[in-house]
Every structure is written in structure tokens, then in C-alpha cells.
Amino acid sequence: MEATEIHEFTQEMHEASKGDTRYISLIISILAVLVAMVTVLGHRTHTEAVLLQSRAADQWNEYQAKKIRQGQISMTSDLLSLQPSSNSIAVQQKLNSYKAHMEKLADDLIEEQRKAEELEHEVSRAERRASRYDLGEALLQIAVVLSSITLLTKQRIYFMLGLGLGIAGLLLAASALLVH
């Protein structure tokens, strides 16, 4: 290249990069902020899923403990009814007490199971939301990279692809709010 060509090329690059570079840099900065926001939402949603899973496990443990207690009372009742006794009235009162306790446990078991299943549903919902945040985050990160390539290559196709992926990532992340 001759000196005049180099000067012309430098002048063209300087003029072309004045407006476009600022605009593209601003969009990249906005995309980076959106990546950070979606990342935080994704992490919070993953944490929520883990905490809900722990609560669901605790609820199932409560269910299991009551189920075991019900089985023990049932076995005790059966053994008590088979034992010979000199005070059949006291035995019958105790059997009636055990029967009432078993009926209450049966009702409690239904409620414990309902609560545990509800918590499992919430875990599933949180995991679906987290997956959308994760995919939205990935698309936004790719958008930042593609848009940055535009600054190096001066080819607007990378910027358009990045912008398209950024919008898709943002919409996907926003759709996590609609998961039921």
C-alpha cells in the first residue's frame, strides 16, 4: 500500500467507526447488563428449587414417620386384642383410644402426602423456570460475543446475529416468569 492509500483507509475506518462503534458498544453494554441480570435470576431460581426440594423431603419424612407410627399402633392393637386379660373393659378402652388415634393419623397422612406432592410440583416449576433462565443467559452471552466481533471485523452481520440472539435470549428468560 502506498502512503495515500493508507491515509485514505485510515480516514475511512475513522469515519465508519465513529457512529457505529459507539452504538454497537452501547448495545454490547446493555446485553452484558442483561446477561448479569438473567444470571442472577437463574441462580436464585436454582437456589429456590434446592430449598423447595429440601422442604419436600422433610414433608415426605413427616409422612413416613406418621405412617410408621400408624403401623406400630395397629400392631400394638392387634397384639393387645389377642392377649388374655382380667380387665377386658380397660383393654377395650385402650383399643378404642388406639382406633381413634389411627383414624386421626389416617387423616394426617392424607394431608402430609398432599403437602409433599404440592412441594414437589413447586420444585418442578422452579427447575423449569431455572432452565429457561439458563438458556436465555447462554443466548445473551453468545449475543455479546457476536456483537463484539463486529467491532473487530466491521461486518454488520455479526451485530445483527448478536442482536437477534440477544432478543431471543431476553424473551426466553422473560418467559420463565410465565411458567406455571
Rank of each mutant, 00 (worst) to 15 (best):
G164E: 03
A3C: 04
D134E: 14
E118D: 14
L26Y: 07
L139H: 00
Y158N: 11
I110L: 14
S124P: 04
D134Q: 15
V35T: 14
L151D: 07
R132A: 11
E112W: 05
A90R: 09
A56M: 07
L172I: 12
G136N: 06
E62T: 08
S86P: 04
H180F: 12
L146C: 10
H43S: 15
A174Y: 00
S77G: 15
A126Y: 04
S17T: 14
M102Q: 08
L31S: 07
A3K: 14
L146V: 04
R22T: 07
I68N: 05
L79I: 03
K115V: 07
Q11Y: 09
E137H: 12
Y133M: 08
T39G: 00
M37Y: 15
G162L: 07
E120N: 11
S81Y: 12
V50Y: 02
V179I: 12
T4H: 13
L135H: 01
T4S: 11
K154D: 01
T76F: 13
L170N: 12
G19L: 12
I30V: 13
S74F: 04
M1T: 07
V50N: 06
L151S: 06
S86W: 07
L178R: 03
Q93Y: 08
H43N: 10
R132Q: 12
A16T: 10
T10Q: 01
I73K: 11
N87P: 11
E118G: 14
R129M: 15
V91H: 00
A143G: 07
K154T: 11
R129Y: 07
L152A: 06
E8N: 15
V123A: 09
A106F: 02
L34P: 09
A174R: 00
A16N: 15
S148C: 13
R55Y: 05
G166A: 10
L139Q: 05
L146N: 06
T153N: 01
H43T: 14
A116Y: 00
S29V: 10
T150M: 07
T45W: 08
S97H: 09
A176Q: 07
G164K: 10
A173T: 08
Y23E: 10
S97N: 10
S148Q: 00
K104S: 02
I73M: 15
Q11M: 12
V33C: 04
T76G: 06
R125W: 00
A173Q: 09
S124Q: 13
K66M: 04
K99G: 09
H101Q: 15
T76S: 13
E62M: 06
Q83V: 06
T4Q: 11
H121E: 11
R22A: 02
A32M: 11
A138R: 04
K104Q: 12
I24F: 02
L152R: 03
